[in-house]
Simulated scan of single mutants.
Amino acid sequence: MSVGNDHGYGSDSGSGRTDDGYSTIGGTRQTRTRFPDGEGGDGYGGSRRPARSSRSLIMVVGVVVLLIAAIAFANLGGGGDDGGASGGSGGSKAGAAPTAATGTKPVTGKNGTIASGFAHDEQGAQSAATNYAVALGSADMFNAAARRGILQATHDPAVVDRLQADMDKAYSASLFTNVGLNEDGSTPSGLTFVSRTVPVGTKVTKQTGDTATVEVWCTGLVGMAGQGSTKPVTETWFTITENLKWVGNDWKIESSNQAEGPTPVSGDNRASTADDIAGAVEQYGGFTYAR
């Protein structure tokens, strides 16, 4: 969600994705979905996925969509630089945890469309970070009213006002046109705008009583689906690091940042048609993530 190679979802220094560590808490299972092969050659279907080198520009655009929040987070200052790396007094560092489900029931609360009421423990912090990553990587972030609601639901109230101002500047007409939207952020007629973050796994790197640093390994989908799309939906891989604080009986993001990868080798699946992708996005809903 940032321009060019400046892609931290919440970079404290404003540096690119490759320099940032950005975490969100990931899902508990890894899934693989294959859409049906398309008919004909419309859109971008019916052919193998092009080599990474031939779609570098598209990947940049994808990063712009998923990681633009970094522009705002970079200006927050404070604990984003060392939240996930340093082990201050009273804190503890945890190793990797298995991604298998724990059996604990998911949260039942909602703050708008976003899960809330997470447990005041390590598992609750992971669930919170995961669900927040999904919300912040969604297409709703391109709508001003929806974006402000998401920021209020996911962040510490102490940082929300400044973050909203920064985000409103970041989601500009030029950004919208770069990702294929109209200048006002609306989707061109006949196309479907896709922006989804899909958590793959989580790791708690530090936790005290009321703070936690959680890394979420994610894959993302971004682009325009439909007949005549010039910006087909592509995938990205990144890790989000969220510094969480226990505020108002729930976990909230205090600061965050992002790093590229780990990125697996692309498979041999045929790319589906633009219409197939658009249909899948409209028909398949998201999840509430919990450990």
Rank of each mutant, 00 (worst) to 15 (best):
I25C: 11
K105V: 00
A165N: 11
A100E: 08
W251G: 00
K231Y: 15
T288I: 12
P262K: 05
T219P: 03
D12C: 10
S15Q: 10
V281K: 04
G109E: 03
G21M: 14
T213F: 13
R48F: 14
A165R: 11
P106A: 00
P232G: 00
Y284M: 11
L76N: 08
F176S: 06
Y289F: 09
Y284L: 08
V64M: 14
R148H: 15
T130F: 09
L66S: 13
D166V: 01
F238C: 03
K231H: 11
G88C: 05
E254H: 13
A146F: 03
G228L: 11
R17E: 14
A51Q: 08
T241K: 12
A74M: 08
T18M: 10
G91V: 03
M59I: 15
S13V: 11
V160L: 05
G285D: 02
D19I: 12
I240K: 06
R55K: 12
N5S: 09
W246E: 00
F176Y: 15
M1D: 10
W251R: 02
V233S: 05
A85D: 13
D168F: 15
S195L: 12
N249K: 09
T113A: 13
L191A: 01
T18Y: 15
V179S: 06
D121L: 03
F238T: 02
G180V: 05
E39C: 05
I240P: 01
Q164P: 02
L244K: 03
G38L: 03
T205G: 12
N243I: 02
D121P: 02
K93H: 14
T263P: 07
S56Q: 06
N257E: 10
K231G: 06
E282D: 15
Y171H: 05
S47C: 05
D276V: 15
G226H: 03
V60W: 14
V200R: 08
N243R: 12
V3W: 15
G261W: 01
A100C: 10
I71T: 06
D82E: 13
R29Y: 13
V200Q: 13
A225V: 09
R52D: 14
G8F: 08
A133T: 02
S116K: 09
P188I: 01
L151P: 07
V61M: 10
M224C: 04
A290Q: 00
T104E: 04
G228A: 14
K231C: 03
G8C: 11
A139K: 12
R17P: 14
I253Y: 09
G88M: 11
G226V: 00
E235Q: 14
R32E: 11
M141A: 04
G4I: 09
G190H: 09
R32S: 08
Q152G: 05
P262R: 01
F142K: 00
A129I: 02
T18D: 13
A271W: 09
G40A: 06
Q123I: 03
S189A: 08
P188R: 05
V179W: 07
V222T: 10
V247N: 00
A170N: 05
